[in-house]
């Protein structure tokens, strides 16, 4: 039997959750200091497909030696997905920031990656994992422990933004600018499909273009002029297309 909370209690809960989300957001912005030992333990989740360290070989996924500072999909001899190759063409580089975004939600950064991993929501876990992986890259750039590269991923959208319910009518109007290139029936000819994506993936992807994390210049330009509500509207519209 639930006890109905009074209005006053509700107000306190709401205020607390607002405060919590601010704190969480501020923490993400400040970044996390990674613990490489903890990261080594987390890496056991990845070992089924990836090797790292002396003698590491490509397996289901590419080996991860030297990944920091390397262009995406640039490791010779590994067969990457089209999406991954495309991101590499666009100039995406694996840095602490981009790896963090990828590990958090792989499909949000690389829409059709073949890496079948759902994502690591905990920022501390990701920081630890990246601190561990960082030991196997020689390039001194983007050392996860050194400011300012400890910054959390810019696409770490606030829970409020993620929770926005999109206006599909607004999305339908705005979608007319998308379908000049993206075919509405979802067919793919040089331009990826954006039809029937899960809402959250759509929102995260658009914010990643808006913040410049995803690199395609046309998409960055299109995303930069969209408000949070407009992105939510587009996500709502494209999700339910027949």
């Amino acid at each position: 039997m639930h006890v109905r909370p009074s209005i006053a209690t509700l107000a306190v809960i709401v205020m607390a959750s607002v405060a919590w989300s601010c704190v969480a957001h501020a923490e993400a912005r400040a970044g996390k200091r990674g613990d490489a030992d903890a990261g080594a333990r987390i890496f056991t989740q990845c070992k089924g497909c990836h090797e790292v360290g002396q003698g590491a070989q490509d397996r289901i996924g590419p080996h991860l030696n030297g990944i920091f500072g390397r262009k995406v999909a640039a490791h010779d001899g590994f067969w990457y997905s089209q999406s991954m190759t495309r991101a590499g063409h666009d100039g995406l580089i694996w840095t602490a920031k981009t790896l963090d975004a990828y590990v958090e939600n792989p499909r949000a950064l690389i829409s059709k990656t073949r890496m079948s991993y759902g994502g690591m929501p905990n920022p501390q876990d990701r920081a630890d994992l990246l601190a561990f992986l960082r030991m196997f890259s020689d390039d001194p750039a983007n050392i996860p422990e050194a400011a300012p590269t400890v910054q959390g991923a810019d696409h770490d959208i606030s829970p409020d933004t993620r929770a926005l319910v999109g206006d599909a009518e607004l999305g339908e109007y705005l979608s007319s600018a998308c379908v000049t290139c993206h075919q509405i029936d979802g067919s793919v000819q040089g331009v990826p499909s954006i039809t029937r994506w899960p809402t959250e993936d759509f929102v995260v992807a658009m914010h990643a273009y808006k913040s410049g994390l995803r690199l395609h210049p046309v998409m960055q330009m299109m995303a930069r002029r969209l408000s949070d509500e407009e992105i939510a509207g587009l996500a709502a519209y494209f999700k339910d297309l027949d």
Partner: peptide, 23 residues
């Protein structure tokens, strides 16, 4: 720009053509 990027840009233009004609 790299040859890869220029090729991708051309492929994108073909995709755009298909898209705008359908639209």
């Amino acid at each position: 720009e790299s040859a890869e990027l220029r090729k991708a840009t051309y492929e994108e233009s073909e995709g755009w053509y298909a898209g705008i004609v359908a639209d």
